[in-house]
Design a protein around this nucleic acid. Sequence first.
DNA 1: CGGGTGCTTGACCGGCCTCAAATTAAGTGG
DNA 2: CCACTTAATTTGAGGCCGGTCAAGCACCCG
Lengths: 254, 254
Amino acid sequence: MRRFRSGDHRIKAGQDIFSPGARCEAIYSLTGGWAFRYALLEDGRRQILDFVLPGAVLGFHPTDGARATYGVQALTDASVCVIRRSDLVALSRELPEIGFRLAWLVSRDRSLAFDHLASLGRQSAHQRVAHLILELFIRYRAQWPGQRFEEMHLPLTQEHIGDALGLTSVHVNRVLRDLRKKGVLEFHYKRLCIHDPDKLIGIAEIDQNLLQSWMGQPALNGDVGFDLTGQKTSGETATSSKRRTSRTETRNAL
Amino acid sequence: MRRFRSGDHRIKAGQDIFSPGARCEAIYSLTGGWAFRYALLEDGRRQILDFVLPGAVLGFHPTDGARATYGVQALTDASVCVIRRSDLVALSRELPEIGFRLAWLVSRDRSLAFDHLASLGRQSAHQRVAHLILELFIRYRAQWPGQRFEEMHLPLTQEHIGDALGLTSVHVNRVLRDLRKKGVLEFHYKRLCIHDPDKLIGIAEIDQNLLQSWMGQPALNGDVGFDLTGQKTSGETATSSKRRTSRTETRNAL
DNA sequence: CGGGTGCTTGACCGGCCTCAAATTAAGTGG
DNA sequence: CCACTTAATTTGAGGCCGGTCAAGCACCCG
């Protein structure tokens, strides 16, 4: 596996991993840091499509050689592992299940995109903000479990949140003020603290089913519970094996 | 391809192929008709996630055994080919590239979901309607080419369009009236006629890149230009190789 | 300390929603 | 083929959520 990595690549916060319109002949696996996919409109406005945590695959596009219709930008300093499409062929010969693994990862993105769509299409600004924050918090906790407090580093500006939710940053600000006044959460300078999780879930109007689906995130070391043979990797093993590698940079997610 | 297959399952228009919350242990390949994926909100409102044309795969979910967070409903009388997850394993042993094929299909859905997301988040009602109609028209034409006129059977109600675009059917109606008055298109009782394609593209404010990406749809007989080796399969070879394996219906479907 | 980025708040406005009712098309049983 | 029913389309009046514009403030970093 390691042979096929054409090297880890480091990206500074705010830099594009690839830009909209780029011709894409490689795929990337995010191994550290936060990023987001985004599309640009003709008038220059931006829509953030989703937020990307380590383990995700970027740059796998339907038609080979086509130009990307969206870009990916690093939110924090990040690192990606680059795999050429040609190497992917060779790799799949040794690891036939890699196609399914890829399908699984893309399918996760699709599910999140669908959730996001329902939120944008049908929910109010308050619901959307609550929805997004819950989603990010739960996905974060699924990857780095063991935190006791409902607090996290969330490397977003209010403009990012607005661009993700189809709102202006001005309005996001008003919503966050309301949530703060109601004692639901605080979000100041990239520090998120959820004071009343239940109330937040109530505001987001999310059903239990959806919450569950966000928790199925792979642990960081890459042993994911998707398995065509039907044997699940237990949470126990995942956690303990993660501890073994916890000091190092996250492994190649593929 | 149009040959009837014994394993097909027929669904009446308006019926669910599977419903939100269903436990999903099989995947489906839509072999005929139109369908759409949808999510339901707690208050009963509906968000249509995307429209599904023949060739797409339904029911491939991230976590096995989990409950679906969305449902799929047939728009017209439709037929699906059912594949058990267990059969999928066996199948993938004989055809290792099937994982990649699946990834490719899911990746197409994801791209469409991303486009849809950008439209919902950042575009006006007029732009959204133009966007959706263009998308459906182009995807339709990519699958059933050879039509001369800018006309098609579009089995949607105005309420479907509203539910897809996060609008009310009332407002969709007003937008369609405007587009009709401007001589751009007519859409009456499931018959769509585009009088001025260029003006429609102008209203949608879609860049050329995106239009192109919608045209990469597989033709109906399943010879898709996705190929890990980089050599495009011509229609000829794909068709003939399909004939060699046409004994089981599942193979054709993927 | 100064410059820049991001946050905060106010006043005003407009696009889309809500509610309601009339009209047309499609489906159904006699 | 026609009465009847139901679903879908059409149009209007009025209201609200979130956008726009503009200004001032807070925090960070060199």
